[in-house]
Computed example of a mutant assay.
Amino acid sequence: MTGAEARARYLDWLARERRAAANTVEAYGRDIGDFLAFLAGHLGEEPDAAALASLRAADLRGFLAARSAEGAGPATRARQLAAIRSFLRHLGRSQDLPVPALGGLRGPRLKPPIPRALTPGQAKEVAARTGQVHDPRHAEAPAEQAARDTALFTLLYGCGLRIGEALALNVGDAPLPGSEASLRVLGKGSKPRLVPVLPAVREAIAAYLALRPGARPEEPLFRGARGARLDPAVAQKSLRTYRRLAGLPEHATPHALRHSFATHLLGGGADLRSIQELLGHASLSTTQRYTVVDAAALLDTWRKAHPRAD
Rank of each mutant, 00 (worst) to 15 (best):
H251S: 07
P100N: 02
V197A: 10
G280E: 10
L36K: 05
A6F: 01
K237M: 13
S86A: 15
H138P: 07
V197Y: 03
L118C: 11
G29Q: 09
L278W: 05
T286I: 13
E125P: 00
A4Y: 02
L265P: 08
A78K: 05
P112A: 13
P108L: 06
E165D: 12
T286Q: 15
D34I: 01
L97Y: 00
L11T: 03
A174R: 03
A78I: 00
L257N: 06
P213V: 03
Q276C: 10
V133P: 08
K237Q: 13
A256S: 14
P199I: 01
S54Y: 02
A57Q: 14
L52T: 02
R258F: 05
S68F: 13
G62E: 10
L245C: 09
T154R: 05
H264P: 09
V292M: 11
A282D: 12
Y10Q: 00
A206E: 14
F38L: 13
A101D: 00
G268L: 08
A139H: 13
R148M: 12
Y290E: 07
K237E: 14
G158I: 02
R226T: 12
A83M: 07
L14R: 00
E26N: 07
V293F: 01
L43H: 05
Q80K: 15
L169N: 10
L299G: 01
A37H: 14
R184S: 12
G172C: 07
F153W: 02
L14T: 00
L176M: 09
V201L: 04
S179C: 12
H138G: 09
D149P: 10
T76Y: 09
Y10S: 00
R129A: 07
L36V: 06
N170F: 01
H90M: 03
G107K: 03
G107M: 06
A127Y: 05
T253S: 13
E180N: 12
T253F: 06
H90F: 15
F261Y: 14
A252R: 06
A101L: 00
L183S: 10
R19I: 01
V197L: 11
R137M: 07
Q80E: 14
E46I: 03
S238V: 08
A305L: 15
A206Q: 15
G269Q: 05
L91D: 04
K191C: 12
L118W: 06
E26F: 01
N23S: 14
F35H: 04
A58M: 11
L265V: 09
R19T: 04
F38T: 06
Q95E: 15
T76E: 12
P115N: 14
A117D: 12
Q80S: 13
H255I: 11
H281K: 14
L284Y: 07
S179R: 15
A27F: 01
V234P: 06
H90A: 02
R18V: 10
A147G: 06
I275S: 05
A21M: 05
P74V: 06
Q276E: 13
L248A: 06
K304E: 13
A15N: 08
V201F: 02
R61T: 05
L36S: 05
W13R: 09
T150A: 15
E277N: 09
A295D: 11
